[in-house]
């Protein structure tokens, strides 16, 4: 079982993106679970959620404290003390940013850092910052945890063709590097 934590801002589609990942996992015959953290969620406020994927039924329904993977929808969130909290040794960080890894205060325990300009993709395609589907593309590429074809089909049926394009762009534009410790 993989435990993943997502960080974003209200309005960026964190919840929807996570639901699509779980749907894709379930459609592929696997197991997935997503719990949104429910605060007083407003457009722009920091939000987060907990995602689990696995080959066995997922029984626990508690928050994720020691994620193997962090999916960060907004690079301004790296300044929050809780964003990198509990990341496992050699864990993966996927972040929506134009910045380089050195500017993102990547913690030392991170193994890989993947950076994708999901906002740029979103602005180009939709004229606004809804980076979630581009992030999903990057997520699929970096982790291989979901079936890429099924994920694309889910994105298309949920959001339409343009979002499929965004996912594909995210998939191909993400740059993956080992964390320089």
């Amino acid at each position: 079982m993989k435990e993943i934590r997502l960080h974003g801002r209200g309005g960026q589609g964190v919840v929807k993106a996570s639901q699509i990942v779980v749907k894709s996992a379930v459609d592929a015959g696997g197991y997935g679970q997503f719990i949104p953290f429910f605060g007083v969620e407003r457009k722009g406020s920091p939000v987060f959620g907990f995602l689990r994927l696995g080959d066995e039924p997922i029984r626990r329904n508690t928050q994720v404290y020691e994620p193997e993977l962090l999916l960060i929808f907004d690079d301004t969130l790296v300044d929050l003390p809780t964003t990198y909290d509990g990341l496992k040794q050699d864990g993966i960080i996927i972040v929506n940013s134009k910045k380089s890894a050195s500017e993102l205060k990547i913690p030392s325990q991170a193994g890989k850092v993947a950076i994708v300009d999901a906002t740029g993709i979103s602005l180009k395609l939709f004229g606004k910052n809804i980076p979630n589907t581009a992030m999903l593309g990057a997520f699929a590429k970096v982790t291989g945890l979901v079936d890429w074809e099924i994920l694309l089909a889910e994105i298309t049926s949920e959001f339409g063709e343009k979002n499929k394009e965004a996912a594909i762009a995210g998939y191909y534009e993400v740059s993956i590097a080992d964390n320089k410790k």
Partner: peptide, 12 residues
């Protein structure tokens, strides 16, 4: 059933 921990939890 638990608010949020099940009501908003997505699973198969």
């Amino acid at each position: 059933y638990d608010g949020f921990y099940l009501s908003h939890l997505v699973e198969g």
